[in-house]
Computed example of a mutant assay.
Amino acid sequence: MFTVPVGSGKTMYLWSGYVGGIQYAWTKFDSSASGNQIWLDYSTDGGANWPQCDLRTLDSGRNYGTAFRASSDTKVKMRAGSRPKGGASQTSNWWSDKTTQNIDMKAALPRSTS
């Protein structure tokens, strides 16, 4: 799991887990507020290009996005993105199923994409 502090005591996460032996990754935003946005960037060329997948404007209930299937291909990478309501966009570092799990990224500075 990657974690990225996004200000106001809130954190964005890139989670990964297994369902039926298949690994998936998804974005989660803690303490979601109406109007916050999350998405998952999905790259098949190591992060050179990517579509923004599952852009979701959150309400006060659901605080996570759709899970996307991971790949053992080292060129397939994912990263979480978020935009707090009225705030700047931020992304996590790139992740692949080859990335060491349980890395705490709070010490890393989030990248602004606005």
Rank of each mutant, 00 (worst) to 15 (best):
G20P: 05
A108C: 08
S112Q: 11
V6P: 06
R62A: 07
G46I: 03
L58W: 02
L40F: 00
I38M: 01
Y64D: 03
T27K: 02
A70M: 15
R69S: 07
A70Y: 01
D54I: 01
A107T: 14
R79D: 02
A108F: 14
G65R: 02
I38Q: 00
G9D: 11
W26G: 01
W15T: 02
V6R: 09
G87M: 04
S114P: 13
T100Q: 13
P110G: 14
W94G: 10
W95Y: 14
N102P: 00
G46T: 06
V76L: 02
Q101P: 05
T44G: 04
A48G: 09
T66W: 06
V6H: 10
L55H: 03
N102K: 10
Q101V: 12
Q101N: 14
S89E: 11
P51D: 14
A107W: 14
K98W: 05
V19Y: 11
G21Y: 05
W50L: 02
N93R: 07
G86D: 07
R56A: 05
Q90F: 13
Y24D: 04
R111V: 15
A33N: 15
S34C: 01
G81F: 05
S82A: 15
D45A: 06
D41R: 08
T57A: 04
R83G: 05
Q52M: 14
K28Y: 05
M105K: 01
G81W: 13
G35I: 12
S32C: 09
A33D: 12
S34Q: 14
L40K: 00
A33K: 15
T44L: 08
G7K: 11
W39R: 06
K77L: 13
T74V: 08
K75H: 08
R69W: 00
V6E: 09
A107L: 12
T27I: 05
D54C: 09
K28D: 09
T99C: 04
R69P: 03
T100D: 04
N93M: 05
G7V: 05
R79H: 04
W95S: 04
D97K: 14
D30Q: 10
S72C: 05
G17W: 08
Q90N: 02
A80I: 03
K75T: 09
S112F: 11
F29A: 02
W94Q: 08
S114Y: 06
W50A: 15
S31F: 00
T3A: 06
F68E: 02
D73G: 04
S71Y: 05
G46V: 02
Y42H: 15
N63P: 01
G87I: 03
Q37A: 03
F68C: 01
L14P: 01
G86N: 09
N49D: 09
D73V: 08
R56M: 12
W95C: 01
N36K: 07
S34P: 12
I22M: 01
W15G: 00
S32F: 00
D30S: 12
R56W: 06
G9H: 10
A70E: 12
G21L: 08
G47N: 07
S112I: 13
Y18R: 14
W26P: 02
Y42M: 09
T3L: 09
Y18H: 11
P84W: 00
S31A: 09
D104P: 11
C53K: 15
S8N: 15
D30P: 06
W94C: 11
D41C: 11
Y13D: 07
R111W: 05
K106L: 09
A48R: 13
L14K: 03
P110K: 08
S96Y: 07
S32P: 10
T91G: 06
I22H: 00
V76I: 10
G61D: 12
